[in-house]
Amino acid sequence: MEKSKEPAEQLRIFAQYLRREERSRGTVEKYLRDASAFVRWLNGRPVTKEAVLLWRDDLLARGYAPVTVNSMLAALHALFCFAGWEECRVKYLKIQRRLFRDEARNLSRGEYARLIATAQKLGKERLALLLETMGATGIRVSEVKYITVEAAAAGQAEIALKGKLRTILIPAKLCRKLQRYARKQKNASGEIFLTRSGKSLSRKQIWSEMKGLCKYADVNPSKVFPHNLRHLFATVFYQIHRDIAGLADVLGHSSIETTRLYLAVSSTEQARRISQLRLIS
Rank of each mutant, 00 (worst) to 15 (best):
L73P: 02
G155R: 13
A160L: 14
H77D: 13
T148L: 07
A78W: 01
L122N: 05
R126G: 04
T148A: 11
K91Q: 14
A151D: 03
H77T: 01
I116C: 09
E86G: 10
G163E: 05
I159Q: 01
D102P: 09
A172I: 03
Y64G: 03
A160M: 12
A74E: 10
G84L: 07
A117R: 11
A153G: 10
A172R: 13
E86P: 05
G138F: 01
G110Y: 03
A152E: 06
A65D: 13
N70H: 07
P66A: 09
G123S: 12
Q156T: 02
L76V: 00
I170E: 11
V141N: 08
A119T: 00
A154S: 15
E87R: 09
N70C: 11
F80E: 02
L129Q: 02
L130Q: 04
R62S: 14
R97F: 06
G63S: 08
Y92N: 12
L122F: 03
F82A: 08
K121G: 13
K124A: 10
R89I: 01
G155E: 07
S142R: 00
E132C: 07
A119L: 04
T137P: 09
T133R: 04
L73I: 14
K121P: 03
C81D: 14
G123V: 00
C81Y: 14
L161H: 06
P171Y: 11
A61H: 07
F100D: 12
A172W: 14
V67R: 11
R109I: 12
R114K: 14
G110I: 02
G63Q: 07
A78F: 06
L107S: 10
G163T: 06
I159P: 05
G84Q: 11
L73Q: 04
K145E: 11
L131C: 15
A119K: 00
V149A: 05
N106P: 00
R109D: 14
T133P: 10
L99W: 11
A136I: 00
Q156C: 06
Q156M: 07
E125K: 06
R89K: 14
A78H: 08
T137G: 08
T133M: 10
A83I: 04
A136K: 07
T148G: 13
R140V: 06
L79W: 13
L165Y: 15
E103T: 04
R89W: 03
A78I: 00
K124Q: 12
S142K: 02
E87V: 01
L76D: 09
S71K: 00
Q96W: 02
K124H: 15
G123K: 00
L165W: 14
L93E: 13
R97L: 11
R140Q: 12
L130N: 02
A172L: 12
A154V: 00
Y112G: 00
L60W: 05
K121E: 15
F100A: 09
P66D: 05
T137C: 15
L131P: 05
E125Q: 13
L131V: 10
